[in-house]
Write a protein that binds this DNA or RNA. Structure first.
Length: 430
DNA sequence: TCTGGGGTCCTAGGACCC
DNA sequence: TCTGGGGTCCTAGGACCC
């Protein structure tokens, strides 16, 4: 049997790179992109990293650096990144077969190259991929190649951190001594599946570098920790244990939650916010042809103010599986009334659609109302279509038509235009 | 003053059954 | 004082990922 070969392709500093495609002024200078509500840094250019700006650091903690070094600061523009991601994945799909691609995240993609080993040189094939993405899309990437997904991930990390690789690290063809030398100097925490807690516990056992983990007793680690870590060690040795998932699995739950721009004290505003989150979640549920049977509702104050921290959560069960927006929102509002307590300054709220199944798996019971289900489907179809054509939130549920100021709306002070998803924002060439 | 959001998987422990 | 054993299912919470 042929030994399997995997690649991991990812976009360098993805969100910053997407912004740079449309705004040349962002090149050669430090740039950061912020999380929702302009809270934390989630993407940094290499110049921003060089200034010591860490991942996930709150914006207010680096204001001095931003002023001093004229760092460009941008709010997240997820519509833009999602569209760039779609194009990126399409380019990669052209290089491999339909069952040889796994879209792992917005900026990462595994490719199975097992049937491409006949190629004279996998590294030059990888370079061809990089060049195509760069030319067609303007996005810089790195590629790691290995005998397992974990090896490919590790190779990708090496490609990113060692300039000599020039974007492609091929663990399959590279001199093993070179790779082992690098892994001996790479922290065990860089391994896919080893997070902060696990790293600490491994270090207590003198397993500090990736090479230490490769040489560790996998069975013993399996008993001491979990089967996942045992598999990780085997994968690092080049034994493929984790399958490529070329089909996107159905979601098990759908979350929609947000921090508020300003704290909210009253039920009316919480109700409006949750109505909007519900609409977002149900649109996703509907798009994926799923149904849900229960809904989690949660509200919380600022978790960084420990003394007054308050959070509350409840689950509302529905009579039957549904994707009916009105029915689901009714349940959410009921849940909210159950958990709401006067006197708190709420900073975040959210809903989770639970007990989710694919629509075609649903078996109607005696009380199933086909007429109203079809009516609801038509209603949602139209609602989604209109919002798609005439702008997000053109049609909303009644509580959201209130024109009062919305303290719960998230801060987005530095958002770039919707270059790829709104006609009015398409770039003009003078 | 200001600290993201959306997921998955595994494990432990309790309830329940025969 | 002493109180079976083995199995399944469910849930909450932790850890991890991007």
């Amino acid at each position: 049997m042929k030994q399997r070969v995997f690649a991991l392709v990812d976009v360098n500093n993805c969100y910053v790179s997407c912004e740079r495609v449309f705004d040349p002024k962002l090149h050669q200078r430090p740039v950061v992109v912020l999380s929702n509500n302009d809270g934390c840094v989630v993407s940094r250019s290499k110049e921003a990293k060089a200034l010591g700006i860490k991942m996930a650091v709150p914006l207010f903690q680096i204001q001095h650096l931003i002023r001093q070094h004229h760092v460009a600061v941008l709010s997240s523009n997820y519509a833009l990144y999602a569209e760039m991601s779609r194009r990126f994945m399409n380019i990669l799909a052209d290089f491999v077969g339909p069952n040889e691609q796994e879209i792992y995240s917005i900026d990462e993609c595994f490719l199975e190259l097992t049937d491409h080993q006949h190629r004279e040189n996998l590294s030059s094939y990888a370079r061809q991929i990089l060049k195509t993405v760069q030319t067609w899309l303007g996005l810089p990437c790195c590629i790691g190649i290995g005998y397992s997904k974990t090896q490919a991930k590790m190779a990708n990390h090496l490609a990113k951190t060692h300039a000599a690789f020039d974007g492609v690290c091929n663990m399959v063809d590279e001199d093993p001594c070179v790779i082992e030398g690098l892994l001996a100097h790479t922290d065990v925490g860089e391994v896919w599946g080893v997070g902060r807690k696990l790293q600490k516990r491994l270090e207590q056992m003198q397993i500090c570098s990736v090479m230490d983990l490769v040489e560790a007793d996998d069975k013993r680690l399996g008993q001491h920790f979990s089967v996942m870590l045992e598999n990780t060690v085997r994968e690092l040795r080049g034994i493929s244990c984790i399958e490529l998932e070329h089909q996107v699995p159905d979601k098990q739950h759908i979350i929609s939650s947000r921090s508020f721009g300003q704290p909210v004290k009253d039920l009316q505003n919480l109700s409006e916010a949750l109505t909007q989150f519900t609409q977002r979640a149900v649109e996703r549920l509907y798009a994926q042809r799923l149904l849900c049977k229960s809904i989690g509702v949660s509200i919380r104050t600022n978790r960084f103010q420990d003394a007054e921290y308050f959070h509350s959560y409840t689950i509302v069960h529905l009579r039957d599986y549904t994707d009916n927006l009105l029915e689901i929102n009714k349940a959410v509002q009921y849940g909210l009334k159950c958990i709401f307590k006067v006197g708190h300054s709420y900073k975040k709220a959210g809903i989770t659609l639970l007990d989710v199944i694919p629509r075609q798996q649903y078996v109607p019971d005696l009380f199933f109302d086909a007429q109203s289900t079809i009516k609801n489907q038509k209603l949602l179809d139209i609602l989604i279509q209109i919002n798609k054509e005439h702008g997000k939130d053109r049609i909303v549920l009644a509580p959201l038509t209130n024109k009062q100021p919305r303290p719960w709306k998230m801060n987005q002070a530095h958002k770039s235009p919707s270059y790829l998803t709104q006609w009015a924002d398409v770039l003009r060439v003078q």
